[in-house]
Amino acid sequence: MRLANGEGLVGEQSATRAMARPHASSARARSRRETAISLLYLLPSLIVFGVFIFYPLFKSIYLSLFASDPFGLGRTPFVGLRQYEIALKSQSYRDGLGVTVLYTLYTVPLGILIALGLAVLANLRVRGIGFFRTVYALPIGVSVGAASIVFLLLYNSRAGVLNYFLNTLGLPSVEWLTEPRAALWAVAILSIWAGIGFNFIVLLSGLQGIPEELYESARIDGANNARIFRSITLPMLMPTLFFVLIVSTINAFQSFAQIHILTKGGPANATNVVVYSIYREAFFNFQTGYASAQAVILFVIILILTAIQFLVIERRVHYA
């Protein structure tokens, strides 16, 4: 039998022929060929990951061990872990970490809860539900950059419509982007809005994956809606919720555009998340080494957080 396709670089033997001659050596040769061909399939992805993910990861660690020369004279002395020490001891870096954690706590739980509510609503079988599903998914089509500009309009203190609503309700105006405590919430609210589309789509598809028979038998047993939600919907949805939790947390830690457009890290560093300070350190102060050390620390924190999420929460996740 001959190869019919153009991939015959390695000369794959057909399965039948190998089976007809079950010698140990030919079986080994076959498995080696199988591996070689499989690697060819993986090669395009591996090259991209190698050049743009794995190499830069190690390069970042390497860069973090050298001090940068802001004057571009090419002197970059080896300083070992000094820059890690400086970062961890520096008040502004710690504040940045604090802001990042706070921002994550503001956005992730609320973002998931709202999307879950919408998904439960959109999973009801009523006429015209398809329209509402599209509407709830719509924010996924609006880039964080474009959404930030729209919210800039809403938050505007002079003519902003958000303060107008607050005033009509008898509440005082809020200086959304210039009052430190409000600014982080302002960024968080926008991020929640921008993230709803993705969370909604994933959670809705999770809900639709729950077998109808489970609901039917629960109803026959006389369970009410709240009971059904607690005993069937939530446990069955756990893997999906877990997926959304991991993705949202990683996204929150990487937020950039909304901060760049709305606050530029201000006021008084109230929204200066670590990613933003890395950006400024690397591309404005040209402290590449120090910025790399900050990035590596953030990477380790995300890794630990994800590991904790896997160890603590996934154990309670029930995979059907």
């Binding site: 794995f54 830069p56 990861l57 990683i250 990487q254 670590v274 690397a282 790399s292």
Partner: peptide, 29 residues
Amino acid sequence: RRFRGRGLIFGLFLSTLMIPWEVTLIPNF
């Protein structure tokens, strides 16, 4: 396909999901 090291390379692929964009940003630039 079945081949040796499949689990390992698959793990390598998934590990890229854990590497945040900001760590690779400066060297990529």
